[in-house]
Design a protein around this nucleic acid. Structure first.
Lengths: 243, 243
DNA sequence: CGTAGCTTTGATGTAGGTCAAGAAATGTGG
DNA sequence: CCACATTTCTTGACCTACATCAAAGCTACG
């Protein structure tokens, strides 16, 4: 059954056990489906009146630029994730969003969303839950950059991404397809691209993970968890938490 | 008029122009007022069924510990800030909260809050607004740790804190009282305490800021803004944005 | 099939960490 | 209000993780 639904429905279903009615409301949220090419930003810092989207396929990243020209990627979004929820609440976007690959996304009209929330409150809970989880991930990212060394950061990042992708059926314990360049990893982890390359080599030579040709392969999952000091708890929802 | 209200009401009032009725509802939110001593955590990672609080006086910090024993402070909360909003939504806290000073905080009952939201929706908007602003600050913090050097981080941090304190009337353009130790600054900025000390000295010797005896003094505000690459925009709400 | 963006590697530099130890401030009990 | 203890601040010497620079081999796609 879950296989019939969109990644978004699938993800929310992992948080809250949804009825068929709720699934239907969910599917009707998606209004206009749009396609964007890789590389061209779909949202700019400071831009007003942005729509929100639900990502159907492809990857995007949210980032901020510093005056010096360097950038920091705050988060990646994968199928099933919301884009620009905060930009709707604030009237203006506070970060940039760039598609990493070609993407398909469904526009979500604010009015529609609010209506869906009032008719099916469990849906509101599920969406807020997802939003809180995103924020928790930003926090974890912050902790990693502040207090982990390069190896730990990379290991943690690759595991976390795996856990998120598993939620929408795009990863297994073996690994997953990953379209990120080493430059993007660098901008996400607060490292230089050169160092990212070296760390990746190290992890590979230690028999922990291989990241080559757009494919992440966990060679020693448990070993990697140890290096990452990964807290299995915070993303491992085995079943719906709300019955 | 604003001077009569609590820091919380004062802060929300800066976002959304509130009516007297709304102010009253706001004041009634605070149920039990409690006092906590400095240093003893009031919320633990993994602990279930936490209450939320509104901080009335004093400072607290939210942090996470890594298995290695190091810690990363994610954010400081000052009077008028919400504590543990996310811990209520998730049933369990995902970080620790430690009072930096002795604090007074009012417990907020979840049921009360939800009720207030449905009767005065503008209040819900204001609270969500504040929550989004907090999240935006965590993002900015992440960017700083990932891509700014120690000087820039410190400068940015001191300015941001000043901007937040100004919202609740606890800072001026001249400076503010700040009870944080250099160890805490270190844990917040992802630096060592020793280096924090050196950076502070540098900034003082360059005539930019002085941080001594619990007092932050801006010696050259504009100069500091330049060093910090501080975006005046993102916290400078001069008046209510929603009329 | 050429050129632009990735990846890989080596050599060298530096910001910030760690260790150590003394000086100030702050707190505590008598 | 003083003596003592404890935390916090400050500074110096040394070291390491990561940045920067540079250049060569890959991929891929228009």
């Amino acid at each position: 059954m879950t296989a019939l639904h969109s990644p978004f429905a699938r993800k929310l279903g992992a948080f809250v056990a949804l009825s068929n009615v709720e699934f239907d409301v969910l599917e009707r949220l998606h209004s206009r489906r749009r396609v964007f090419p890789a590389g061209r930003d779909i949202m700019h810092e400071g831009q007003a009146n942005q729509s929100a989207y639900i990502l159907a396929s492809g990857w995007v990243c949210s980032y901020k630029l510093l005056p010096g020209g360097t950038r920091q990627i705050v988060d990646f979004q994968i199928p099933g994730d919301f884009l620009g929820l905060r930009s709707v609440l604030f009237r203006t976007a506070d970060h940039n969003i760039e598609p990493v690959t070609k993407i398909e996304a469904s526009e979500v009209l604010a009015a529609y969303l609010i209506n869906a929330f009032s008719t099916t409150p469990r849906l509101a809970a599920a969406v807020l839950w997802a939003a809180s989880r995103d924020e928790a991930m930003v926090v974890e990212h912050l902790v990693g950059i502040g207090r982990r060394d390069a190896r730990g950061r990379m290991a943690h990042f690759l595991l976390e991404l795996g856990a998120r992708l598993k939620l929408v059926g795009l990863a297994t314990r073996e690994g997953y397809a990953c379209p990120l360049s080493q430059y993007m990893l660098a901008d996400a982890l607060g490292l230089s691209a050169v160092h990212v390359n070296r760390v990746l080599r190290e992890l590979r030579e230690d028999g922990l993970v291989t990241f080559q040709q757009g494919q992440v392969t966990f060679d020693d999952f448990d070993g990697l968890v140890t290096v990452a000091e990964f807290d299995r708890h915070y993303l491992d929802h085995e079943g719906p938490l709300m019955k």
